[in-house]
Every structure is written in structure tokens, then in C-alpha cells.
Amino acid sequence: MVDAEELEVTISKLYQEHYLDVYKFLICFSGNRNDAEDLTQEVFIRVLHHLSRYNHQSSIKTWILSIAKHVAIDHYRKKKFVSIFKEGFFKRLVSGGKQPSEELEEKELQATVHDAIASLKPDYRSIVILRGINEFSVKETSDILQCSQSKVKVSYHRALKELKKKLNVEAEEVLRHAR
């Protein structure tokens, strides 16, 4: 049996090691910093409550991100978001050498890409966020989403095809502007 002090150290360590990955995933999913912060707290509360159930079949990071996925979907269902990514949290740092017209064009393209990602069904959106934006492997994505690797591959391909059709651009271009 783990005593309270050991548990506190374990949770603190898990939080420090995985907070940023969870937060980035949730900000991608929710499109809102405040929601992402609240949901990140909810994830680690669930981790605390269910740590004894962790079965070591996958990495702890995968397990925590799987919890994050469930928290995000629960939140999405409750709120029925009209749009995700409206606030453009994926804005890249703008170099001082760009002209204002170039910056505006890039921001408009990013907003269009984020709106297109937001319009995907939740399964596709999760896969695009994990594989395309966060660059997780097929195995990590399948572990997090608790589905087969072939489903991840097929769904990712279909999601990119759908995005390509919505945006009328190449899939690689879509992901470059989503990051």
C-alpha cells in the first residue's frame, strides 16, 4: 500500500512530466486556454483517483493521454462546441521580416485550417491532432485512442482526405498551417 506522501510525490512527478503534453492536446481539442487548463486539472484529478488501476500494459504517458481524450470528449459532448480553434492558439511566431500583408494572409490561412479541423467528426479530429499536429506515432495514437493501429492509419488518411477536399490543398500543407 502506498502512503499519502509517496502518492503525493508520484502525482507531482507525473504532473511535471506530462502536464505539457496533456495541455497541448486539450488546447488543440477545445481551442480555449481556460477550458484546456480546467480540463488538464480534471485529467490529473482522474489520474490521482485511478492510479491504482493503471495496469502497466501501456506507457504511463499513453494512459494519461487516454484519460485526457476521454475528458475532452466528455467536455465536448456537454458543451456541444460550435467551433474549435477559433482563437488560433497554434499561431506560429512571426518573424520580423514579414510584411503585414503576408502576416495577415498567413493568419487567415491558419484560421481556415483550424476551422476545417474543427468541422471534422471528433474521431478524425483527435487523430489529426495526435498524429498531424502533435506528431505521435501510429502506435502511440492507437494506444491513446484505444483502437487498432490500422484504424488510426485509415482514419488519419480519411481525415486528411476530407481536410484536403474542404480546403482544396495538399494534406501536407494543411498540417503545416495547423502547427
Rank of each mutant, 00 (worst) to 15 (best):
V47A: 03
H50V: 07
V138H: 11
D3I: 11
T62F: 05
L65A: 01
R179G: 01
K98Y: 08
S126P: 06
K80F: 03
H114K: 05
N168Q: 15
I60T: 07
I144Y: 03
A159N: 04
E5K: 14
L14D: 02
Q149L: 00
R92T: 04
V94L: 12
S155T: 10
A178H: 00
Y23M: 06
L120A: 05
G31Y: 06
K151L: 09
I11K: 05
L145A: 11
S126M: 08
N168P: 02
C147F: 00
L120P: 13
S66D: 11
G132A: 00
I84F: 11
T62P: 05
K166S: 01
I84G: 01
K24S: 07
F89Q: 07
P100G: 11
E8C: 03
R158N: 02
K80L: 15
K98M: 12
V2Y: 05
R53S: 15
E5W: 10
I129D: 10
S150I: 06
A178T: 04
I117E: 08
A4E: 12
A171G: 10
K69Q: 13
E162D: 05
E108C: 12
A72D: 00
H18L: 03
K91T: 13
D74P: 04
Q16I: 09
E170G: 09
S59G: 06
S142R: 05
K107P: 07
Q146V: 03
V138T: 04
Q110R: 12
P100W: 09
F44T: 09
I127S: 04
L20V: 14
I144S: 10
V47G: 06
I129G: 04
I73L: 14
F85Q: 05
K24C: 05
N55Y: 10
A72Q: 01
N55S: 04
T10E: 10
L26G: 08
D21L: 00
E173W: 14
I45T: 07
Y54H: 02
